[in-house]
Simulated assay, not measured.
Amino acid sequence: MGTRLRTWSIGVAGLLLAAGSLSAAATPTQLPSATDTPSATGTARYGATCSTATSPPARGLPLTWSDEFGGRSLDTRRWSTVMDFPGRAGGHYHNSSYGSYAVDQNVVLSDGRLRLVADNKPVVGTDPAGTYQYTEGFISSHDKFFQSYGYWEICAKFPAGKGLWPAFWLIPQDRSWPPEIDVAEWFAGMPSMHTGLASGTWPDVRWDSKWTAGTAPTTGWHKYGVLWKPGQLTFYTDGKPTYTLTGAQVPSKAMYVVLNSGTWANADRGGPPDATTRFPNSFDVDYIRVYRTR
Rank of each mutant, 00 (worst) to 15 (best):
Q133W: 07
Y151Q: 04
K210I: 02
A102S: 14
P178R: 03
D111R: 12
S55L: 01
F283M: 04
R289I: 04
W177D: 08
A48M: 04
W228L: 11
Y132M: 09
A58L: 07
L164G: 03
L17W: 09
V290Q: 08
T126E: 12
R175S: 07
R278Y: 03
G225N: 01
G42D: 01
A24S: 15
T64Y: 00
D84E: 13
L15D: 09
D84V: 07
A34T: 04
P57C: 03
F85W: 10
D238Q: 01
D36S: 14
E180R: 06
F279L: 04
V257Q: 10
F283W: 11
S148Y: 06
C155H: 05
T3D: 07
G112A: 03
Y46N: 13
Q173S: 10
A129Y: 11
T212R: 10
N266L: 15
D119M: 00
D286L: 01
I171G: 05
T49I: 01
D36E: 15
A216C: 02
L116R: 09
G11Y: 14
P57N: 02
Y256R: 06
A18D: 15
S33N: 15
I171Y: 07
W202E: 12
Q173H: 05
P62R: 04
A58R: 02
G130L: 08
F85A: 10
S66D: 14
I181Y: 05
F235K: 07
